[in-house]
Amino acid sequence: MNMIVCVKQVPDPEAPPASFKIDPATNKVVPPPGVPPVISPFDEQAVEAALRIKDAKGGKISILSLGIGLLRDVVKKPLSMGADELILLEDPAFIEGDSWSTAYALAMAIKKIGQFDIIFCGRQASDTDAGQVGSAIAEILGIPQVTVARKVEVLDGKARVEKVTADGYEVVEVNLPALITVSNELGEPRYATIKGIMSAKRKEPIVWKPADIGVEPGKIGATGRRSKMLKLFQPVREGKVEIITGENEEDAAANLARKLVEVKLL
């Protein structure tokens, strides 16, 4: 199995909400000081999905990431978990895109990689929360997609995917090659092993520029955008909580019950 996993470096979504700031002049997030970026959590689960298939069937996993200022310690994490190679689309021309122009660059890089049976993406990036890049890559490459997977296996040359639904899941069989997006229901990604970390240290990422993957310059990054972001802002919270107290916790609890009945909420 030849697998490609697309991963994105994002501001750490686990950083405390109070540290989240936007610069209104640039419509951009101000990274909280001292909190390093991470790989978007669903993308890490996508790496885990690929590793489980590699464990069962063998194969090669290529990690593909687009951005600038990609911290090597961050983007090398999938290598330390067991992926085989890391390809970076690292150039200012690639960034500030929307789902479409980003997916176009990734799809062109995937074409250059050539051999693949499954492309994995996270179900959505934890910054844009759009969940479109996977579908766009599949559309550009003309391959089938299954989104929001909780389990992926390969059987008889097809992938068998458990797709999360509102009231459970469905088992979907898909012809290969295919694109699959992965959700948190897949389970925790594995930890890096010492051996993995040592081997990742020695591996240098392959860096591709726009000319390396034959993209049309007008279709990537900011110039290739189909949608424009007019404004990025933080919703205003009113914060008018009434704290119910009492002699002790049990008493406060009883007072809460009385209050909720009194105001007819219960």
């Binding site: 914060g239 609890a253 009883a254 009385r258």
Partner: peptide, 27 residues
């Protein structure tokens, strides 16, 4: 608490049983 209308600060292990008992009684 920034999102809430009412709140109680404390250990849920103490609060939930007392709250449940009182709700049962009142309703």
């Amino acid at each position: 608490f920034k999102e809430a209308r009412f709140g109680v600060v404390g250990d849920w292990k103490k609060i939930v049983p007392a709250f449940t008992a009182k709700v049962k009684e009142l309703l």
